[in-house]
Design a protein around this nucleic acid. Sequence first.
DNA 1: ATTAATACTTTCCAAAAAGTTAGTACCTCT
DNA 2: AGAGGTACTAACTTTTTGGAAAGTATTAAT
Lengths: 115, 115
Amino acid sequence: MPEFLYNNKLYYNPVEFAMDRIGGTWKMPILWRLKNRVMRFGELRKDIPHITDKMLTSQLRQLEAEGFIHREVYPVVPPKVEYSITPKGKTAIPIIETIRNYGLELMKKEGIPTK
Amino acid sequence: MPEFLYNNKLYYNPVEFAMDRIGGTWKMPILWRLKNRVMRFGELRKDIPHITDKMLTSQLRQLEAEGFIHREVYPVVPPKVEYSITPKGKTAIPIIETIRNYGLELMKKEGIPTK
DNA sequence: ATTAATACTTTCCAAAAAGTTAGTACCTCT
DNA sequence: AGAGGTACTAACTTTTTGGAAAGTATTAAT
């Protein structure tokens, strides 16, 4: 496996690279929810259990910086900001689905009720 | 999304559950190498760049505990231990491949030479 | 007696990720 | 004047993850 630098970080393989973009605790849950609709900050917060303002903001910023989502600000008071998925973000959906189904499969094997 | 406990840890979704079994820096590289052959500790260490003894040991133990690999000890001196993938471990290979291909795709978009 | 080989184990430490708590800016409405 | 609503921002702490370096056990070979 080749190793390479990107944004001053050293990666050892493509899996690591992918997981750095869409991995972590919150990025997939966010992308998953945006997959077929636009959502506001407050909506996402309500919909994703246990996420904090800080985590939501920082993850949204990272996803935006990588081009997975788009952030649209409306200059009104109180503030209104809408988040939507980009074409690049959509390419992540099937991957998330694959991992999700695998997770469900493993859970089933462990006897964890999946509903 | 349902939340649930497993081994005293709280999970919020199936993706998280899957990534806790086969995610992290080293588990996929290990499984990937074992996918079609048995390997010894020293072989794995030589083959996976930058991994330390400690990390290799701890990841192998976790993979074994979850049933993804099998550990065979030969009572000889110096010690000999062989690691092999189990049927359960094999189910992870296509997932790794999917993520890997996605990583390669993202790298290509970023202009990172993939070989 | 010393060295070599192999597969760990242990201790201590640093960095990264995530969580907690509190606060800000702005305008509208009462 | 004060409260309410929205999307943050900042400071601080905790937890998790990973890493470096050294040590252990056993026996054979020199």
